[in-house]
Design a protein around this nucleic acid. Sequence first.
DNA 1: CTTCTCGCCCTTTTTCTTGCTCATCGGCCC
DNA 2: GGGCCGATGAGCAAGAAAAAGGGCGAGAAG
Lengths: 164, 164
Amino acid sequence: MSKKKGEKKAKSGKKKELAALSAADLAPAITQAARSVRTALSRSISDSGLYAGQDGVILALSEDDGQTPGQLAARLGVKAPTMTRTIGRMEAQGFVERRADGHDGRLTKVHLTENGLKSVESIGQSVADCGAMAVRGFSDKEVRTLLKLLRAVEHNLQPEADED
Amino acid sequence: MSKKKGEKKAKSGKKKELAALSAADLAPAITQAARSVRTALSRSISDSGLYAGQDGVILALSEDDGQTPGQLAARLGVKAPTMTRTIGRMEAQGFVERRADGHDGRLTKVHLTENGLKSVESIGQSVADCGAMAVRGFSDKEVRTLLKLLRAVEHNLQPEADED
DNA sequence: CTTCTCGCCCTTTTTCTTGCTCATCGGCCC
DNA sequence: GGGCCGATGAGCAAGAAAAAGGGCGAGAAG
């Protein structure tokens, strides 16, 4: 697998190399952008008493209450163990609560508590505010383009959903 | 699905609200996309023996060897303590080594070891490969647009660089 | 037809890492 | 000597992978 491209600047004269260079820059770019978003969002929602990554659980539950950890994990794009621990912490914080499903003993339904329900709009506002700050100066078309490309990237990187 | 989005507050009915909704979707989208990139990259470089986040150190050092932790942190967009710990672990793994600067006692220069130097091309290949997979099906123009928007987002979220 | 066992699914636990914030220590410049 | 900058340490949390626990259902056997 020794694909010695040698020096990066040793271009073979193919335009594909230029695209490859851009693609190589994409991973760091998206990582840094996500870190910035994460940090900004973390500060926005810290006054609500929760941490980055918990906001998605609140919002997902506000749309469909009583989801299982697996559903939440799939919806938010994280692994099940991560969701389990996040739920456990949010339960300790009093935002959500776990209820055993009567029909399937292996299922656990996650419900918003009153406290969690009250924080929904605050969280939504913080997320929207953070997003608005991120796209400050963008045209509406640019925002939609960014959104579309982001989702395409996410779709391209799904290991299972490789329909190519 | 009962998506009662307009239920939280009575909006004023301006077209700006539509943009706000897109902006609200941006934070989750970029977070999930970054998670996918991080996971894919982590698997790509795991056979090189290092973890996600360490690749940037290797590549940055391959371009300019002997940088200080602070320079690396600024370059990779992480905080100094994070870089310190990452460097410490990579030093234990044998990829980099710390050397005290003779002129300034408070500075620490980070250098690539022979082992680290050998992994440079493999890492660069993994990053490029991951980026290429992420933008599969994208036109060259779309890739550049995504890159540009990503950097603009990052710039918008810098607390210090608030030139507004 | 009943019952038991095996396999699968979902959840949870554990261990590793990155990343941030706050706090500390040490060396340099004024 | 005092302030400042840079590096480091401690504590908190997310996220991933590997593995364990428990329940449900289907299929085989009586």
